[in-house]
Amino acid sequence: MNAARGFPAFPPQRAGARFATSWWGRAWVKAMEDTSLDQVLLRKGRAYAKTGQVGPITVSPGRIAAVAESDYDTVVRVEQLTDAAWERFLDQVAAKAGHIAALLDRDMPHDLVEAAADAAVPLLPTVGDLEPECSCPDWGHPCQHAAALCYQTSWLLDADPFVLLLVRGRGQRELIEALQQRDTPAPVLSGVPAGAAFAMGVPPLPEPPPYDVPYTPPALEPAPGVDVTALGVLAASAAWRARELLLRGRLPELTEYQDRVRLAADHDLDLGLGAAVQAWRYGGAGGLDVLETAWTPPRQDLARAQALLEAGWEDEQPPHVESWRNRWTLGPLQLRYGRDGRWYPFTEHDGRWWPAGPPERDPSALARYEATEMT
């Protein structure tokens, strides 16, 4: 008896994500779409699938199930192959050594499906082979929830054709065991035996590359149609990204605008981004965010900051604060609370607030510093 296989819910997909890139996955989708009589429900199903409104999927012989939007129990049933049909299918797999190797490589050979069909073994579903069920009140066949489940199942089939075989009644382990009983040559797997690999022990890792080597810009010769200065900036940016990846194992996620500000700040480029460049130099993406975005912090964060501000002035009277969302104005100084938990100082120039220094966790440190500077 095959154990059911569980798959985690698919997260929302990017715009333009496709269903079924494999030929057998597309055949699955076609069987479902050709059965449907309602294109509106299919469109809803595609939207539900791409926006992650289907829960974890369970695949078992003859059955694919999930809980969809609003906790609807959704099932798609597929007829299982008979024992006799499985025997004929195993004959086709055993007839060519490359068939099982291709399946293990997560490929479904065309000639295997065609040979199985010639032996009256229908692996891929056609019109009417998929039987959807759903606890929602919609009478569509399939409803949008069952359609979404079928669309997401095509992704599972793309990744592993053994999912299709499991739905038809037998999974990978049972298939391999049945082939071994037929004295089918096992696929040749390259590598080192596990015992020998464990006996080798863990080899020492190489020393990490040096991170503190200063960047040396390449010597670029002028060339027709080539902006050498821009090319040098791009090379320096690539070096910075490589260093960040080595140091932290990941790159910060920047929008196109943020990356343009970063380049202008790092390379003194005149792109008309004065305040934004200054904010980036003081606080990076966090400094740029407080420059351009007002937001409402949690009350407990503001209460803690108020207590720090009052404590910082000890027995003196703290300055009057005009507060609005994440912005506190103390006369000529404005403190802006960032989403990173730090306060950023701003001073007024020509009727506009400009970044005035690096951020601090304690707003009183910024307020007292400014008061000292102005006396």
Rank of each mutant, 00 (worst) to 15 (best):
F7D: 00
F7R: 03
F7C: 02
F7Q: 01
F10E: 03
P12Q: 06
P12H: 08
W28Y: 09
K30Q: 11
K30L: 11
A31G: 06
D38F: 12
D38M: 09
K44G: 05
A47T: 03
G52M: 10
D71T: 01
T74H: 08
V76N: 14
V76R: 10
V76A: 06
T82G: 14
D83A: 15
A85G: 10
E87C: 10
L90M: 11
L103M: 10
L104E: 04
D105E: 13
D107E: 13
M108E: 00
D111R: 15
A120H: 14
V121A: 08
T126C: 08
P132I: 00
P132H: 04
P142C: 07
H145M: 11
A147T: 00
S154Y: 05
W155H: 13
A159G: 06
P161M: 11
F162W: 15
L165W: 11
G171P: 11
E174F: 09
E177Y: 08
A178H: 04
L179N: 03
Q181H: 12
Q181T: 01
Q181N: 08
D183M: 12
T184Q: 14
T184F: 13
A186S: 14
P187N: 12
G191D: 02
V192P: 03
P193R: 14
G195I: 09
F198D: 02
V202T: 13
P206H: 07
P210Q: 07
Y211L: 14
T216V: 14
E221N: 05
P224K: 13
G225E: 03
V226Y: 09
V228Y: 05
V233Q: 11
W240D: 07
W240I: 03
W240G: 06
R241A: 14
R241F: 04
L245E: 00
R250A: 13
Y257G: 04
R262G: 05
D268S: 13
Q278K: 15
A279Q: 02
Y282Q: 02
L291Q: 01
T293Q: 14
T293W: 09
A294H: 10
W295E: 01
P298M: 04
D301S: 14
D301R: 15
A303C: 03
L309A: 02
A311M: 11
P318I: 01
P318V: 00
S323H: 08
N326H: 08
W328V: 00
G331F: 12
G338I: 01
G338L: 06
F346V: 00
D350G: 08
P355T: 02
E360M: 13
D362M: 11
A367K: 06
R368W: 06
E370S: 11
M374D: 02
